[in-house]
Design a binder for these strands. Structure first.
Lengths: 390, 390
DNA sequence: CCTCCGCGTGAATCATCAA
DNA sequence: CTTGATGATTCACGCGGAG
């Protein structure tokens, strides 16, 4: 593997940006974009070399400015391996604010008028980020809470367990129209109720967590793919260009590739970039059928099937069958099923293949597990047991 | 009912505040405080009349600066009764920021050094508030998410359901020590696990929601008592003075009275103040036993290890061991332990034999009793029980 | 083969009091 | 003010080895 030569910041052509606000149509600038590449270099400088109004979505995970002073130990006296990297150190709020406004302003310029921005942060930085987002003319659509299934406890018992992080989702301006939001698909994957602003996911651990040859984590703050996937499924379409100005371990790129999106990753650390490239090279994209946006049409009741995918209990692209294995369907990434040209909820597709007016997809469909079949209903039970939340 | 005359802003005595930072001890200023009263008038002016370092906790629910442009209708074309009051209109972010910094700065002055502040808001204003909190020198302890059990749906299907609000919990400064946090009590009431930063409560509806004679809600943003109660139970003690600079319908006062706290409410709208006063008058305080905080371990009197020897509960020359009996030490008559040539406190020797930087000797060392091991910590409990002050 | 248990660890602004 | 002594404090998972 190597970082593509064209991806080096110094090789990227400098783009002329009109001062009048008139921009080259997006389709004409695509050949100027380092699509599906990792651009090595300072993120603000790299952003300046990207043409205006050229990307469809941005997912940004900037430094949090944690301001950690002292070492922290667990009650058993073991050492907590905290984020103490050079890239997370800023001398003051003013310096952090200036940095934040600089990269956000460039991001806004690079966004198509219909694009939206996600930024993730914690209480250390998210208020600075949110104020900057508003001051720069973005329009906040939602703030979203990532509730962590397994957060680190508060070892000293002096505060509440810091059990969540916050994402800001914003359009380019208050009057931006036509941004992508797959309301229907999200609803179908959420017990047929609207997807809420509080999301529940485990941390990125285990197999998913990138490790180096010595078994150490490659990046201190690698985000779970499920979190990024929900953002991309909600607010982008297959083929869209997703920009991540703080690419790190490349979660955005890996998820984008898997879901049939394209990506542009900016990263200044060659070690991170190398690890990200190898990771992405190993990603196998899902079939187009599995990621094509479901028709945004009011349909029959659908159920919380998406959560099982997000939890990794069912894989996008996996085949489901009925108990007698007479019928087959493919799971799509957004929590719908497909049989040939038909796309719909587990219930609707179950009814259709049987020629019945209705069907309980939870009891009808089965997944292959351990050389046998298991009703997805019992997978749902497992999920409930694992993720029981009030 | 009437608003107490002494509570009118114009009647409150102007307090002289030393510029040197030296302040009158809190106990001396209590008689200058409008305790358990609602102060009518502009909140910033009223705050200026309160003495410095005089309140134990602040719960603030400021205007959200909602920026609602057009009327919103539900899918059935019914009208959504949104917050559109004069007090929630600001011409710009700059104006809202100036207002926010003014009331927050006064709040900080009024807080005792051990006091903490809660502010609640939504994505419309919380980033402005959070930045101001940080800029003014507060130290954020947590951000907390109120997850709404029954949020209003997004009627247009263009965004995620806005299903949460955010609270910021902050101490007066980064080096503030001794703030109240009832860690053990919260843990005991939460399945014996730490209370997390994501809280789940229903909206304030039904009986709890104040209505006027025509059945209309008195206040557009009345908060649920359960939410305020958790904040007060977590970060205040019975008898503490809780300040609410945006008193509104008086939820903070009602909860404070019920939980045996005292309150100061600032409110500029006489209609809200009147409704709040009537509401609070009807609150019956809980028995003192029901609100007394369970004694936290760290607040219990310190017992020197020597006292256990003096009480005959441990004998000089006796052997202590750790729970797995891997380490042994001999008790010396002066209350120190010895292992070979080493002599030191129960903590020092415990740390040393384990090779740790520190150790809680009380939980590490065990004595042999009745053919088993008993932590010296439980001997200490016995000692405390025997020698408890009446 | 499975189960149990110990160990490691995660974006963390993580103590208080007396001298 | 600093310094040093005391002593309080963890949840959910994944993994690997023991039984």
């Amino acid at each position: 593997m190597s970082i593509p030569r064209t991806a080096a910041a110094g090789v990227l052509p400098r783009i002329k940006v009109s001062r009048t606000g008139r921009q080259t149509p997006a389709v004409r600038v695509e050949h100027l974009l380092p699509i599906d590449q990792i651009v090595l270099g300072d993120c603000i400088e790299s952003l300046r070399r990207l043409p205006s109004q050229s990307v469809d979505m941005i997912f940004a995970d900037p430094p949090y400015n944690l301001q950690l002073e002292n070492a922290l130990t667990r009650p058993d006296n073991s050492h907590v391996d905290a984020v103490n990297d050079e890239w997370d150190r800023f001398d003051s709020f003013a310096e952090y604010d200036a940095f934040t406004r600089a990269w956000l302003a460039e991001c806004r310029r690079v966004m198509k008028k219909t694009a939206t921005l996600f930024v993730i942060g914690s209480y250390h930085n998210i208020f600075r980020v949110g104020s900057a987002v508003q001051d720069l003319g973005f329009w906040i659509l939602n703030d979203i809470v990532w509730r962590k299934a397994n957060p680190m406890p508060n070892f000293r018992g002096r505060r509440f367990t810091n059990a969540h992080e916050t994402l800001i989702w914003a359009s380019r301006s208050a009057d931006a129209r036509g941004y992508t939001f797959h309301y229907e698909a999200l609803k179908a994957g959420n017990e047929d109720t609207q997807m809420r602003s509080d999301w529940y996911f485990p941390l990125c651990t285990g197999e998913e967590r990138l490790k180096d040859a010595q078994g150490r984590k490659v990046h201190p703050t690698q985000k779970p793919e499920a979190l990024v996937a929900r953002a991309l499924l909600a607010a982008s379409n297959p083929g869209d260009i997703i920009l991540d100005p703080f690419f790190g371990s490349g979660t955005t790129g890996a998820v984008a590739k898997r879901l049939g999106r394209r990506f542009i990753g900016l990263e200044r650390d060659p070690v991170y970039a190398q690890a990200a490239q190898e990771r992405i090279d190993n990603v196998v994209p899902l079939d187009a059928d599995a990621v094509a946006a479901a028709p945004a049409r009011r349909t029959e009741p659908r159920i919380p099937f998406l959560s099982l995918l997000e939890a990794g209990m069912i894989a996008a692209g996996e085949e489901l069958v009925d108990a007698r294995e007479k019928h087959r369907a493919i799971v799509r990434a957004d929590g719908t099923l497909t049989v040939g040209p038909v796309v719909g909820s587990i219930h609707k597709v179950g009814a259709l293949v049987q020629g019945h007016p209705s069907c309980n997809g939870w009891s009808f469909w089965h997944a292959r597990r351990n050389n046998g079949l298991i009703a997805i209903d019992s997978l749902r039970d497992d999920y409930r047991a694992r993720h029981a939340a009030p």
